[in-house]
Design a protein around this nucleic acid. Structure first.
Lengths: 191, 191
DNA sequence: CCTACCGATCGGTAGG
DNA sequence: CCTACCGATCGGTAGG
């Protein structure tokens, strides 16, 4: 049974995703919970705190998904797993993923630095994944690991805009992976 | 020489990109132009109008870039050209591209529908580009044109978050294209 | 382009 | 969890 505080956090993620942080008032949140806005301050310290809570949950979820990628597996399979994991988080926690991806800039300075550090660390883990693939020989030797990571992560970060609960996210991740692994042309003509 | 009105439109795009539509006040815009906020209303009808102006400029720029893609050329080259064009717009009009990509939801109903229709049309043009590649035989026959378009356009739409003026956008577009065309594995092992 | 102002709403607090 | 309120700020307007 969710606590009242959990309910507030969930509604905050939902409304921040739908209307943006600055487009959501404490009055909107109070209305969603069926209380007066003054009452919210027994559940949270401030509107900023609600944003930070959502951000931390997003960072936790994306890192946890990446933790599930097998250490020893062919590079193509590891990319597939990582992409599945990312899209699953977006699909299953769409509000949190949306806020995490789009609203971090409205955090106050210290909080923003904390979350940006988590974002950078996440991106770095993706880059390492491609570099390990190069070292283990599973990827073409002339691959630019940084560009590959940027390409895949960019597509993943945009997913919150088009992923819907009814879409089969694993299948979509696999289609992306198929394109990324063997290309749209399908036969290697360049080095 | 830019008119006062052009200056306002440019500052609006800059601040909407930096702080978001709801995070930017007419007072902020007035300060950026060095006038009192009441004076802005001789240059624009409302804050909403400034947002709509920025959106229309964004839609115009992205469609214009796609217009430059050669009709008759190998599919891989057409994708390369389209990606170059998109990233050039983002790079050269970063503020406009950012607002166009991220702030459309704060438009009022009728304006939002207009801009969303332009976004959908742009995405559709990308999908057609891949389908034409399939028909002309330049792409592997089992390619999912919809998934390919979604993948590339997702990466392109995220570019406003990491593109900086000093980066060579054409080169980056070409690296993306190289990965997309021949894949990260580099030799075709699956059908 | 300015001064002066409008009603509305904001995030947050006091006291219960 | 409520009522009542705080000072600040919002987008926009009137009249010059």
């Amino acid at each position: 049974m969710p606590t009242r505080r959990d309910q507030l956090t969930r509604e905050a993620a939902r409304l921040f995703a739908e209307r943006g942080f600055h487009g959501t008032s404490m009055g909107d949140l109070a209305e969603a919970l069926g209380v007066q806005k003054g009452s919210l301050y027994s559940l949270t310290g401030s509107k900023q705190q609600l944003l930070l809570d959502t951000m931390r949950e997003g960072a936790r979820a994306f890192h946890a998904a990446l933790d599930e990628v097998p250490e020893r597996a062919p590079a193509a399979e590891r990319v597939q797993r990582a992409l599945r994991g990312h899209l699953r988080v977006v699909s299953e926690q769409l509000d949190v993923a949306t806020v995490f991806t789009r609203e971090w800039r409205y955090l106050e300075d210290a909080d923003r630095e904390e979350i940006l550090a988590e974002r950078r660390r996440y991106e770095e883990r993706w880059r390492v994944l491609f570099e390990e693939g190069l070292e283990s020989g599973g990827l073409r030797t002339d691959l630019d690991a940084g560009a590959a990571a940027l390409l895949v992560l960019s597509a993943a970060n945009w997913a919150y805009t088009w992923l819907t609960p009814d879409r089969d996210t694993d299948e979509l991740a696999d289609r992306f992976t198929a394109i990324l692994v063997d290309g749209i042309r399908g036969y290697a003509t360049s080095s």
